[in-house]
């Protein structure tokens, strides 16, 4: 799914713009990282792309959807094509891992059998095959994060938004999770990940957007860790912080 963002502005309170004049073009099958200091507006941008926040000015085109004019009634249908991993995960803690992962398919009306098959496959892929029926409340932070990742992939989304998906994971798991998301590119899935872990960027072919106080301060591509030369200085400075 191609996702284009045109001149997006956003303010929660009218005097305090959180995003100003953001434009992006995410091509199908691309892996994109959103980096930048805390409070720079990464989560806000992602929520706008998911339809969680109303678009104030600007436009977002995602596949066939025009988010600025999206009717509330159609939002669920747009979301069925998108997978979102929230920073706070949004899991149901007294439900089992399996039930949590099955929920997007339940909401679409898939049969129970299909739901289970898909959920089990994904939970195995994130290394939670032994925790299918464990209530999320009894899982560790990293395990919960992997449940959320499995849930965001279960309905084969065409666009994946992940807000700091590796925040609670050790480096090895982190790489594994991003690798899992990265594999989705083969299906033409567009991926946007916000992260503080700049080390990740060196491991993949990806585009990087660095945000500062609501603006895109820098954009560059990283080819298997070899960043395009003109941005090296900026990246190293950022990564070493």
């Amino acid at each position: 799914m191609r996702v284009q963002v045109f001149n997006l502005n956003h303010a929660y309170l009218s005097e305090h713009p959180v995003l100003s004049d953001i434009s992006l073009d995410l091509v199908p099958g691309s892996l994109n990282f959103l980096i930048g200091p805390s409070g720079s507006g990464k989560s806000t941008l992602m929520r706008l792309l998911f339809g969680d926040e109303h678009i104030q000015t600007g436009q977002v085109l995602a596949g066939q959807w025009s988010l600025a004019h999206l009717h509330k009634r159609d939002l669920p249908y747009y979301r069925r094509e998108v997978g979102f991993i929230y920073q706070d995960l949004r899991l149901l803690h007294n439900w089992t891992a399996e039930d949590n992962v099955m929920l997007p398919l339940e909401a679409i009306g898939h049969s129970r059998k299909q739901q289970k098959q898909r959920a089990h496959l994904l939970l195995h892929q994130v290394g939670l095959g032994h925790h299918l029926r464990t209530p999320v409340a009894q899982l560790s932070g990293g395990e919960r994060q992997r449940v959320a990742i499995a849930r965001s992939l279960v309905h084969n989304p065409k666009f994946i938004l992940a807000d700091e998906p590796t925040a609670n994971l050790d480096p090895k798991l982190s790489d594994g999770v991003i690798e899992l998301l990265n594999q989705q590119r083969q299906r033409g899935v567009t991926i946007l990940i916000s992260t503080h872990e700049h080390a990740l960027i060196k491991l993949f072919n990806c585009n990087v957007f660095e945000m500062k106080t609501g603006k895109i301060a820098q954009r560059f591509s990283s080819l298997l860790g070899q960043k395009s030369p003109q941005n090296t200085a900026g990246f190293i400075k950022e990564a070493s912080q």
Partner: peptide, 12 residues
């Protein structure tokens, strides 16, 4: 919480 989650996974 459930409603919030349902909203985010494309439930009508």
């Amino acid at each position: 919480r459930e409603v919030e989650v349902l909203n985010s996974v494309g439930a009508t």
